[in-house]
């Protein structure tokens, strides 16, 4: 793994973007977007996560393995949440009382 040293300027720009995103997500929460408000909130959070991971955690210079590890973790989190939602979102869907 060769050493990449990013410039301070890069970090300042990323940091500024993170602050702006924080202000944006706070502001947008006061706007009525209906069911999309949670989508927007999570989308902004994901963008912030990507900024932190790619730049501050140096994922953009990292090996394929590191990216795979990260992707795997998010996939497994997805499995946990989606498979459980399969249950909770379909309760009563087939007309069996209580199930």
């Amino acid at each position: 793994m060769s050493e990449h040293i990013d410039s301070v300027k890069t970090y300042v720009l990323v940091f500024a973007a993170l602050i702006c995103a924080t202000l944006a997500t706070t502001a947008v929460a006061f706007v009525d977007l209906g069911p999309f408000s949670v989508v927007v909130a999570l989308a902004i959070a994901v963008c912030k996560m990507l900024l932190v991971a790619l730049f501050f955690m140096h994922v953009r210079h990292s090996t394929k393995l590191t990216r795979l590890v990260l992707l795997g973790a998010l996939m497994w989190l997805g499995i946990l949440i989606l498979m459980t939602l399969t249950d909770f979102s379909t309760r009563g869907a087939l007309g069996v009382p209580g199930r």
Binding site: I79, M83, T86, T90, R91, A93, R99
Partner: peptide, 22 residues
């Protein structure tokens, strides 16, 4: 192994649909 855990819960209030998937 991570996709099948619901088969321990067939007689709980887990939805029938989820039961079928698991």
């Amino acid at each position: 192994g991570f996709l099948v855990w619901g088969h321990h819960m067939f007689v709980s209030t887990q939805s029938v649909y989820a039961g079928m998937v698991f």
